[in-house]
Amino acid sequence: MRSESAPRSLKLAAGLGLAFLHLPILLIFVYAFTSEEKSFAWPPPGLTLKWFAVTWGRADVWAALGLSLKVAAISTLLAMLLGSLCAAAVARTRFFGRETISLLVILPIALPGVVTGIALRSAFSLADIPFSTWTIVLGHATFCVVIVYNNAVARFRRMHGSLTEASMDLGADLFQTLRFVILPNIATALVVGGMLAFALSFDEVIVTTFTAGQQQTLPIWMLEELVRPRERPVTNVVAMVVFVVTLPPILGAWLLTRGTDTVAGHGK
């Protein structure tokens, strides 16, 4: 570790950069309480809790939230299953085409979301698949796989290869080894991957617009309000709620990986 401190100009630039990243989000919290109804006027003419009550009574918001949670939950489970299987195969064995598989997993987020979206849409249209909750899940799980995969693959790589051999050497068959050695060792990575996948799915809008048909997830609901505003204060409240809902999984993921990261950081 270097003992010297940073030059003042660097401190300033880094601080301004961080402020740039965070101040806009704070604004969301202020607007959720504004009493202004028709415009985005700043400063808010007054503060009120009224719009929280109005939002609470809105069936469309509840429906959208419900769908979003459902889609995120199913997609996350699917992504955890597929991502960890793929990670196990890629990290534990060498085989022909390994690189191709890594690429295949990464492709859905490496390519612009609009490509993934239109690709799924044209496939649905070619195959005459009607839009439903499942078409949304199909898209979400596809790009969530990589999140779980990345976390799991990193953990598998850190795990000593001889651990599974040691387990089998001590009498455990493959399934016992999976249960008593492999799963406990990659559990946090899977949970972290799952949390982040959940946050990603809950928030996704670009691919969803192509795969959702008439159904509204919460981000789609918000997008509609942004394009054709009906009741701005309700949107303000929903924006804050969406931010707050995605916060715990992100913080949780950070807390769970924190230890390993500091260890890695000390090694440098």
Binding site: E165, A166, G171, D173
Partner: peptide, 20 residues
Amino acid sequence: LPPYKRAVNTVFQDYALFPH
């Protein structure tokens, strides 16, 4: 016979102790 059915046990070079 797979390793888990052999009457031998191994001390590994990196010890392979289960970290959890």
